[in-house]
């Protein structure tokens, strides 16, 4: 895929969690893979994240959370996207997410969940896949 046509991705840290090593690392490997990446910084509300995503016309939002608040906060982001008519934005996530929550998150509409230790190339490939699949639909 030509780097120039790769879409824009927002990496967001919803809620009060300050652990941003993973978010920054994923932002950088996506940049390395040719995506244009916007990183929100820590402690953003779901509203702030969705506002930025819509304003910046991103194709995907990656949410990173290590505080255990993922069910509440990922849900809120998805609701807000729906309210704004921005359901076409792909949402993926990562962090310390217990395996049993992953099916629930996927049912809610989270496309992919990357747990600690997922290799960079696997993340990039999965996001490439999601976006390709999504644009075909």
């Amino acid at each position: 895929m030509n780097a120039a046509v790769k879409p824009r991705i927002l990496i967001g840290k919803p809620g009060l969690d300050g652990h941003d090593r993973g978010a920054k690392y994923v932002a950088q490997i996506l940049r390395d893979a040719g995506f244009e990446v916007i990183y929100t910084g820590i402690r953003r509300s779901p509203e702030q994240i969705v506002d930025t995503a819509v304003q910046e016309d991103v194709a995907a939002i990656g949410l990173s959370l290590l505080s255990g608040a993922h069910l509440a906060l990922f849900t809120r982001v998805l609701e807000l996207l729906h309210d704004r008519g921005a359901d076409d934005i792909v949402v993926f996530g990562g962090g310390t997410i217990p395996p049993k929550d992953i099916p629930r998150l996927k049912e809610m509409g989270v496309a992919e969940v990357f747990t600690p230790g997922t290799p960079a190339r696997q993340i990039v490939a999965a996001i490439d896949d999601c976006l390709l699949h999504h644009s075909v639909m």
Binding site: G15, L16, D17, S45, S67, G68, A69, L71, A72, L73, R76
Partner: peptide, 21 residues
Amino acid sequence: LPTQIGYDSDDPMAAGEVGKV
């Protein structure tokens, strides 16, 4: 996290985070 940052449990900023970490 709400306690660490200084929000009460009923503050909107605490949503989803009460008693978590």
